[in-house]
């Protein structure tokens, strides 16, 4: 569905590339997760996908069609993106906000149709915000706001959903609710690409994990393959161990007490420090 092929991108006046030869594939019907430390290039992937930043090399394809052959609205009808940061400044009922997801389908003279309204209701139901329909978006809690944003993306109607850190500021219950929602959307046939820092949740929910470090893919594959202590220690510059969660069986990362160490050096305070 969404495919990055050897993509390199650089911000204007930046000393180095934000992405260097990144390849990844987010197929339909699967939850694909991109993880990596701050500044590893995760959000840049979203910017390239939204064409806010043009790649210097490589290509991005949506269903095997080059990204640059889409016009903006057409792309928004195929791929719905929930960016990392969004702060509302004006009052708006949640239903009106979700209805903005239909914008790529509207024309200057085309009012919303019955179909649009039905899709908006469906999107609110799927994201669990139906009971918030008349609430002001400025009065929502963090969890409600994130779900309203996902409802807006669902109302766009495409078959791919891209989310940049959808669980920031969410408590455990809302975090789990969010990942269950994303997993169910993937099971229903969408391509779901999520960027997240929640490695342990990703390890439980994602079909494929892509680990970015300094703009490059350092590991990709099923969570068991990517969640390797040596790789993660190197990337996150922190001593840690990876265990198998006894309750759910997924690989689980446990950061250890210690201090930040430089890249490539053995960690302190772990059983591996002498090797």
């Amino acid at each position: 569905m969404i495919r990055f092929h050897e993509v390199s991108a650089q911000y204007p006046r930046a000393p180095r590339e934000a992405l260097s030869g990144v390849s990844l594939h987010a197929p339909a019907g699967a939850l694909t997760a991109v993880v990596g430390p701050n500044g590893s290039g995760k959000s840049t992937l979203v910017r390239v996908l939204l064409r806010r930043l043009l790649p210097r090399r490589g290509r991005v394809e949506i269903d095997a069609r080059p990204l640059d052959t889409f016009d903006n609205r057409e792309l928004a009808r195929r791929v719905a993106v929930v960016p990392q940061r969004e702060s509302a400044v004006f009052s708006l009922p949640v239903r009106e906000y979700v209805a903005l997801g239909r914008y790529p389908h509207e024309g200057p003279w085309r009012a919303e149709t019955r179909t649009d309204l039905a899709l908006v209701e469906q999107a609110m139901a799927d994201a669990g915000v139906t009971e918030l329909a008349t609430r002001d978006i400025l009065a929502l809690s963090g969890g409600e706001w994130q779900r309203a944003r996902i409802a807006r993306a669902l109302a766009q109607g495409g078959d791919a959903l891209v989310l940049d850190e959808p669980t920031t500021f969410l408590d455990v219950g809302h975090e789990m609710g969010m990942f269950e929602l994303l997993a169910s959307l993937a099971r229903a046939g969408r391509a779901v690409l999520v960027i997240s820092h929640q490695l342990n949740l990703i390890a439980r929910f994602a079909d494929t994990m892509v680990l970015l470090h300094e703009g490059q893919v350092v590991a990709a594959g099923p969570p068991q393959a990517v969640m390797q202590a040596t790789t993660l220690e190197h990337v996150y510059h922190w001593p840690l161990v990876v265990t198998r969660d006894p309750a759910v069986g997924a690989p689980s990362l446990v950061p250890l007490r210690g201090h930040r160490h430089s890249s490539g050096r053995s960690p302190v305070n772990t059983s591996e420090s002498s090797s």
Partner: peptide
Amino acid sequence: RQIDVLALGEEPAAALG
């Protein structure tokens, strides 16, 4: 209608096409 979308902010507006 574009003002409605722009009022969400640059990135969300771009995401809506």
